[in-house]
Design a protein around this nucleic acid. Structure first.
Lengths: 349, 349
DNA sequence: CGTTTTTATCAAAGCGCTTTGGATGATGCA
DNA sequence: TGCATCATCCAAAGCGCTTTGATAAAAACG
């Protein structure tokens, strides 16, 4: 059933039927009722393809899921983010177009999406410290919002980010307050912007208190469980193993704990751990007292906010750039305790 | 730049330009070359919306991501599956349309997708033992492939599944061979088809050897880390705690291990564990000797196969239904060992 | 009562592409 | 030379919708 058939059947013009269904005022309530009933009865809804051609809008938002050849790895944060954003799109009548692309094809895919007119806007995931996608999209004139930021880019653009620097500064400060000095950082890949900011926060805390940072204790890798395991083993094998570790995601943190258990060490006793917790739906750091002390920020909510911002930017294209900086909360769990020296001191007293 | 402008510019008809770019034979190689060069130079590619209207095909595949209200939970398997499927879509020029919907809206969304003509086919995720979506989609005439099966549905349909029953029968048999009799099963939600088949395999193994199944040791829940932790604690608190546990996913398995560690028990020594491993990209059960003994089947590959099947089904609609049953491999890791009694016996000898 | 305004409807022109059904001229064959 | 065949190219129809500009009927106005 298409518009022509429906309007013929009703003895009305296509114009009137189309307008009746879209809620235009220049159609009487009586006919509107008639049209709506008929549409429902005949299970009619306008053909998406025709509608989009006629209106010139794609009513779709693009998300690119880049896959690197070496580590066929999907960002575990992706699905929760998408869930948050997708709900918003659905509410507003937008479709979500997901493109799985090889890293090296990413730029071409953006170009293609733009010239084909397949989407009205896109979301940029996982920005690098100096991310070329921002310049590209600006040049293409395709509305976009970045989930995160790109430190080296000075032109304005829309972004939603967590205050990673402050979060990690606070996490580090907490460990310093507990007497730890020998603190390791298991961070994400070095070229990722969030990782750079977290390292900066980590260093900030040391410097603010006049302590030196041991750069050898900072590592940057893809955040898998295996990475956490292997790196923690390496750290424990050092002459002076760290007494505390900050880990950029709950996933390597699980690997780290595995290494601790293998070594017969107790989490929060022998080694303190603070993680960054994206509040993944299948990996909640929960309980009356959560397992991990954490800097927490919901990636699901970030998805919602990015979607809202992008839809707003599409509706009002010339309103300048928008930004949202979310603060992470620091929640205390059972994975942190005083440094060994402090513990002995406290036990004595 | 659109087709009209490009063809005017070339002094050719729209027909010829369109055909030249689509590789039709009724255009001379010389003009084709000219057209292709011009298209590249002017950065032309046909408008998706117009193309789709003209051809009557959506060139999109729909995936629904259902979200239940209570547990705002995304299937962790989803992103790896999507990555596998999406790559195939991209290769074949299809877009992937992702719809995040509330559980109760799922049927309506399928209807809407079909009447709007927004997709050429859909993938059904996480089928229930008796899943109404299959009948609905069949009735709608929308091509689809189910990732998994639905035991109670007797009409033919396209599916790609793992032989869950045999995998879990083999896993259980292994534990029985090691002398375990008191074996628990941490399974997924009871109405999920895969969970029913795994329970069946579990029971098969017992019955095949004339042993009774202790139904109290079978539990069904959403497969989070927390579930694994809590359930393992419950099991350990029993009068006769199980000496072995089979767990339907690596995620609750991590929770279970956490509970074991808390209780001071050693994985593979005090309690044996076999998991089902979907080979998630950020959670590889790897190493020279993997941590877990597992039944393994790559969900990434399942995605690829589902995509291939669906595209094939769209291309040849009246070729009857297609099915693929993948066998899981059983890989030995460090999480399994002889039952306590057997261990003592072996130590004596 | 004639004229203007408002209300309710419609015909037709796009949107940018694909595809059908010719046309045209060159080539092959007898 | 005459006719069929082939290789190229084109005009125009159509995909199913939205939207502009116009019209007829009803209501409001002086």
């Amino acid at each position: 059933m298409n518009l022509k058939e429906l309007s013929d059947h009703l003895g009305l013009s296509q114009t009137t039927v189309s307008r009746a269904l879209d809620g235009y005022p220049e159609v009487s309530e009586r006919t509107r009722k008639r049209v709506q009933d008929a549409a429902r009865r005949h299970n009619y809804s306008p053909n998406t393809r025709a509608k989009r051609l006629a209106t010139g809008r794609a009513m779709s938002i693009g998300h690119l899921l880049p896959m690197s050849k070496e580590h066929e790895m999907v960002n575990p944060v992706f699905s929760d983010f998408i869930a948050g954003a997708g709900k918003r799109y659905a509410e507003r009548g937008y479709d979500l177009l997901l493109s799985v692309v090889r890293d090296e094809d990413e730029a071409d895919t953006y170009r293609d999406l733009a010239t084909r007119g397949a989407v009205d806007g896109v979301v940029v995931h996982g920005p690098k410290t100096n991310d070329p996608r921002i310049a590209l999209l600006t040049e293409l004139g395709l509305p976009f919002v970045v989930h995160g930021r790109s430190s080296a880019v000075n032109t304005p653009y829309n972004w939603v980010d967590v205050n990673n620097r402050r979060a990690f500064e606070r996490a580090t400060a907490l460990l310093l307050d507990l007497g730890h000095r020998n603190i390791a950082l298991l961070n994400g890949l070095a070229d990722m912007d969030f990782a750079a900011r977290r390292s900066a926060g980590f260093r900030d805390a040391f410097l603010a208190r006049g302590h030196a940072v041991n750069e050898a204790l900072i590592s940057n890798e893809e955040m898998t469980e295996t990475y956490g395991y292997r790196r923690m083993q390496e750290l424990l094998a050092l002459d002076a193993p760290p007494t505390a570790v900050i880990i950029s995601s709950i996933i390597p943190a699980l690997g780290a704990r595995r290494a601790l258990v293998d070594a017969g060490l107790a989490l929060g006793q022998d080694v303190s751990v603070v993680i960054h917790d994206d509040d993944l739906s299948y990996f909640r750091n929960e309980g009356d007292v959560p397992t991990y002390t954490a800097t927490r920020s919901s990636v699901h909510e970030a998805g919602r906010r990015v979607a809202d911002m992008l839809l707003e930017a599409i509706a009002n294209p010339d309103k300048g750039s928008r930004t949202i900086l979310m603060e992470a909360e620091v929640t205390l769990g059972r994975s942190t305790g005083p440094a060994p020296a402090v513990r002995r001191f406290l036990d004595q007293a």
